[in-house]
Design a binder for these strands. Structure first.
Lengths: 136, 136
DNA sequence: ATGGGGCTTCCCATCATGGGAAGGTCAAGG
DNA sequence: CCTTGACCTTCCCATGATGGGAAGCCCCAT
């Protein structure tokens, strides 16, 4: 199948498929005489794997590791689990950070009249806050 | 004061200060004969404002709007509140997304032995999942 | 054989930030 | 007075993942 079909079936855009190939994430497929990329059903499988990994927030580098683990039939499931759990913690940390920002802002907004008057504790806070040493 | 001191006092790197100037987020400061940028105390104030805005997850474009509102003494606090609350919702959405990813992955990991054996439901899921129409 | 859709490569843009090079400047101390 | 080192200037490049689009070739159906 051509790249377009592989894209549709895997949920990965043709553009990205080419990119993944260029960075060595996936192996270059065979080519027709006219240089068209030719994909097998298994390649779609791999692409779906990548898609799923990305959807779960793994970076391409992490995805590369996961792919390697996936292909290595002899690896210990503990390796995979460790990688996954480390990622879970990262995700939860980022989620908590965003939530904290939202909470802070929501709190500030609570004290803002939100009417026609100009006074606004939100902007007042922005202007008054002293720089904290390095952010997250 | 020079850019270095303004950077230290505001918590915004010199590099970023120059960048903010280049995109018109902040107004170009005066220059010495040797082209050194010269900042006033008030400029540090502005930079802190930007820093705070960024720390709360506003994009530079949103920060630009907030700055405009800040400077416009006649705007209604409702305008600020609306912008802030819209942002709160965005932040909470993103936080929820990350949390959902974490939960999914944690769930998968629960079923992974995490020992020396190779079987791993995490990778199995990755490989089997059918592409969903568009992500987030 | 022609038209339209798909494929190829290549370059550019995004967003916010940092790194680093090459060169000018300033202040302090010998 | 001159050197040294810290600071400043501009300019270019890189990141991470993705999309947009141009120029040109290919393939199939009409």
């Amino acid at each position: 199948m051509n790249i377009g079909e592989a894209a549709t079936r895997s949920g990965v855009s043709a553009k990205m498929i080419r990119y993944y190939e260029s960075i060595g994430l996936i192996t270059p497929p065979a080519r027709t005489a006219a240089q068209y990329r030719v994909y097998a059903a298994e390649d779609v499988h791999t692409l779906r794997f990548v898609r799923r990994s990305r959807d779960l927030g793994f970076s391409l580098e992490e995805t590369r590791e996961l792919l390697a683990l996936w292909r290595d039939k002899s690896r210990a499931s503990a390796d995979v689990k460790n990688l996954a759990m480390a990622h879970v913690r990262e995700l939860e940390e980022k989620a908590a950070e965003l939530k904290a920002m939202a909470d802070t802002l929501r709190h500030l907004a609570t004290h803002c009249h939100g009417d026609h008057r100009p006074d606004c504790p939100i902007l007042a806070d922005f202007a008054a806050t002293t720089p904290t040493q390095g952010k997250a």
